[in-house]
């Protein structure tokens, strides 16, 4: 069953059309990767799913995007509820300049939870699920900016998991990490897909091949092809996809 579904989704930045008739379905508890050359619209598409494009002036949308069957475009959408359900991990780790603990419980606090025991329990659970708890449990008061980049990115994932989202959007989450750290974050993603549905944008085709179940290839604002990752990489149906994955282009 698909958790996110777009239908004829179009998006313009001013007069520039960044997404053209995108029809995409994201399956539950799977990792869906979006690949394609820079500027193809994959990050833009990702940001539609939790309406982060709203921050940019002059963005116009047409078509339909449904999360669990509910339309999320349009002015009536409760963005706070949506973003709680559909969380996002950014390209550069962006922990807040607060303590590790405050970072993890940030979203809980803003959603009105004050009970210290609940916060503590949620912090431990979230940090454990990104495998940071043992490393950091004695140091929760330290400023999050003092952590390594990998730890920071894990912390950002933990911060997100604390509100138990259904979908986790990841915008090139490993692009600032070294290969070892990348590998460990990938392992984490595979672990996380048991409980969450993940959409990841990546520049790295090997990464998409390694971790994703489904894969979509985007070019110039169009979703050229979407299918099971194995099939996309072995028997692409579209010539443009084949050119890209065989390295003839991009």
């Amino acid at each position: 069953m698909s958790i996110i579904e777009t239908n004829k989704l179009n998006l313009w930045y001013g007069t520039f059309q960044a997404l053209i008739d995108v029809n995409l379905a994201v399956a539950q508890n799977k990792i869906t990767a979006l690949i394609g050359p820079s500027g193809c619209g994959k990050s833009t598409l990702l940001r539609v799913f939790n309406r982060m494009n709203d921050l940019i002036e002059g963005v116009r949308l047409a078509g339909s995007v449904k999360v669990r069957g509910a339309e999320i475009l349009g002015d009536g959408t409760d963005l706070i509820a949506l973003r709680k359900k559909v969380g996002m991990v950014f390209q550069r780790p962006n922990p807040f300049p607060l303590s590790i603990y405050e970072n993890v419980v940030y979203a809980l606090r803003i959603h009105g939870i004050r009970d210290k025991q609940k916060l503590d329990a949620a912090a431990e659970k979230a940090l454990s699920s990104v495998l940071l708890w043992d490393e950091l449990k004695d140091n929760l008061g330290a400023n999050a900016l003092t952590l390594s980049l990998e730890q920071q990115q894990r912390l950002c994932i933990a911060r997100l998991l604390a509100v138990t989202p259904e979908v986790v959007l990841m915008d090139e989450p490993c692009s600032t990490l070294d290969p070892l750290a990348t590998m460990r974050i990938e392992e984490l993603m595979i672990e996380l897909k048991k409980r969450y549905s993940i959409v990841i944008v990546t520049h790295n085709m090997q990464q998409a091949a390694r971790i994703s179940d489904d894969c979509g290839y985007m070019l110039l604002g169009e979703l050229v092809e979407l299918g099971e990752t194995k099939r996309i990489f072995t028997a692409p149906r579209d010539q443009r996809t084949e050119d890209y994955i065989t390295g003839r282009f991009g």
Binding site: N50, L79, R83, P95, F96, P97, I110
Partner: peptide
């Protein structure tokens, strides 16, 4: 302040005001 603070906070479902007083001002 890095724009990423604000984005990160909004992406977690914070309102603009919550973002201001929990992240922007401390930062």
């Amino acid at each position: 302040n890095p724009k990423s603070y604000k984005e990160g906070s909004l992406a977690l479902g914070a309102t603009r005001w919550q973002t201001v007083y929990r992240v922007t001002i401390p930062a």
